[in-house]
Design a protein around this nucleic acid. Structure first.
Lengths: 379, 379
DNA sequence: CTGAAAGCGCTTACAG
DNA sequence: CTGAAAGCGCTTACAG
């Protein structure tokens, strides 16, 4: 392997001169530059990034933790993140919790060993906020709160719930079925600790669950919880449907990492609620519903209103109305926070984001607006 | 940052003893091990992977080049690759040509600088085989031939074409419309240099194009071409439909990196060929067709037979028959070839896979069987 | 089995 | 502006 030393020898100059030329740092005389460049060309010299990384103590790589890249939501998000990282000279390492033998702990290990410079966490987690906060290396969370010291970026799911509710109310639906994630992710309310798995309408959802959750599940003295902001979407929707006097049922579709779960959930909806006139689910659930409705000969949206939540290309393909999450804005915010943390970590010693005495008791939470996209009628 | 030196000092032993304990290499006395481990725990020592990588001259990372991770085909493939890499202690770096500012050349650059140890190439390429062969570092191609010295893994697309043809013939279709990639990727036949973009039936497709392609587009003296094996699928299908006297038309859907292209192509199929009774496309095209057929009130498969090619979860959701590529087997083969190359490269000097004088004039090509999966009737 | 030493390829103060 | 030197943290022959 030919190194800078060989180039220096060949060009008859010192090592540092070669380094200066290679990196374009500082001034080098034209003659020097030319000699070095000629030597590099003659020897086919290629700088060794491994050595550079070692010296800089930076890998130039961010780990992106998602349940599975197969899911269109995470595929779309990850693509946007990769673009943002790339624009800042960083690379994305795929860190799936369902597609690999590794779990979150292994990726955190990679973070500590500096295989990656930071972690964008979009997966579920069983760890408590203390775990995440104590790592002291750049971590940014997507759509979940990992702890008071971990910046989080979330879609405005309450707005999403309102958008869907408005559509359903305006279209005169009488019986809405929602197919969504495990109900146990919803916060447990103190006066109603046993939540039915198929929740029947009637019990008004509490939109301001956040404070209560902090009390019950949160860590004393911090505002961090592991609650998923996503559930606010369903809770808002349920509350608004209740107010409008519209019947609604909820079917659990299993973990997000299981793509089949939503298909099964939708099938159950058709079987168990033959009189449903609206179905609300993720893109995959909605697309499944369109295809299944066709098999059954029901026309849309006359008989069955279908609304998708997420707005990836799968909603496009299905041709349904949807709430679209702003993937580009989410990615931009996530990477922006990440870069800020990395720059900050440069300054301090080795405890970049620890339980520092600095400001920030409230978690840095960035809320990204969502959009309503009606089904295209003209395609 | 606490390093091995600090641990050694704390434990009162030498550097190398610490290294032995950390790596579990060789024999260390129990007392020694215990002292070192205590010191590591007390100091919160974490090995620095950057230094290790530097020393080993290995990043432990493979770049996976795909057009875009958003596409369900590449998402599914990449997930399978990640799993295989992970099983061998390697990581996957996302290298999109459409989702990032970088192009193939930048990823090759990363390969040469050793930011990654190898490259799995699943994207299109404008480069000629010489370009790829001359790189002399581990590269494996998926579903395309990059040059005689680059191992390739391909699905058995001719079998795929036969499977689809059989289904169409058996179901008594009279007019098949195919929505696929740019026709210009098809090999140019010498006696028919102008290929219509919308190819009309009648002209028998030449299945044995490979030899001719080598003559026209190939590099003299090698068997390498940049032709995409994928086109064999359509060519086989067209030939068999011709033999069966079934009319067929072809609509170009644009590059694979454009997810919208297939949707538009399918819409065109409905508009331009109102009498079509079968539509063949990728998963996304097929799913779009199901949803569009529903909008139009056509029932399936009575009026319109829809067949998908790829067999990702999108075909599942649409509930259509499909040819399924064996993603797990593909990934296993790709990673297997990659690891073999990496191990080989360890042995030689710096020219691992160059234009070596060793055997191998014929490209190492692994063909992975495909499967027919009929539409589920019971869901 | 353990320790002292050299070296991986690069960058960066620090003298000239 | 250029050169000699030290050092990043780890691993690995090589002596004891």
């Amino acid at each position: 392997m030919v190194g800078m030393r060989d180039v220096a020898k060949r060009a008859g100059v010192s090592l540092s001169s070669v380094s200066l030329v290679v990196n374009g740092t500082g001034y080098v005389s034209d003659e020097m530059r030319e000699r070095v460049e000629r030597a590099m060309a003659e020897l086919d010299y290629v700088p060794n990034q491994l050595a550079r990384n070692f010296h800089r103590n930076r890998a130039g790589i961010i780990g992106v933790i998602v349940p599975t890249i197969r899911h269109p939501f995470f595929a779309t998000l990850t693509a946007a993140i990769e673009r943002e990282l790339s624009a800042r000279g960083l690379r994305a390492m795929l860190c799936s919790t369902a597609d690999a033998a590794e779990g979150e702990a292994d990726y955190v290990d990679m973070l500590e060993r500096r295989t990656v410079d930071g972690l964008i966490v979009g997966s579920h987690t069983a760890h408590n906020p203390d775990y995440w906060s104590s790592i002291g290396r750049p971590i940014v969370a997507f759509d979940r709160v990992l702890g008071a010291t971990i910046p989080a970026v979330c879609s405005d799911h309450e707005a999403g719930g309102r958008l869907v509710a408005r559509q359903l109310v305006e279209s005169g639906c009488r019986h809405v079925v929602m197919v969504g994630g495990p109900r146990e992710q919803f916060p447990v309310k103190q006066n109603d600790s046993s939540v039915d798995h198929v929740k029947q309408s009637g019990a008004a959802a509490d939109e301001s669950f956040d404070d209560k959750t902090r009390e019950t599940a949160g860590i004393p003295g911090t505002t961090g919880t592991t609650t998923f902001p996503t559930v606010r979407y369903y809770m808002t929707l349920e509350r608004l449907l209740d107010e409008a006097g519209i019947r609604h049922d909820y079917i659990e579709a299993g973990e997000v990492s299981s793509l089949e779960g939503y298909q099964e959930g939708v099938m159950r909806a058709f079987r168990e609620f033959p009189d449903m006139d609206a179905l609300v689910s993720s893109d995959i659930g909605a697309a499944t519903a369109v295809c299944e409705a066709r098999r059954r000969g029901e026309s849309v949206p006359e008989l069955l209103e279908i609304v998708a939540y997420d707005g990836t290309y799968v909603a496009d393909v299905a041709g349904v109305s949807c709430v679209r999450q702003d993937f580009d804005a989410i990615a931009k915010a996530l990477v922006g926070e990440m870069v800020a943390l990395m720059d900050g970590a440069d300054g301090d010693g080795d405890e970049g984001a620890g339980d520092g005495g600095a400001a920030a008791t409230a978690p840095l939470q960035t809320i990204i607006p969502v959009m309503w996209r009606p089904a295209s009628t003209t395609r």
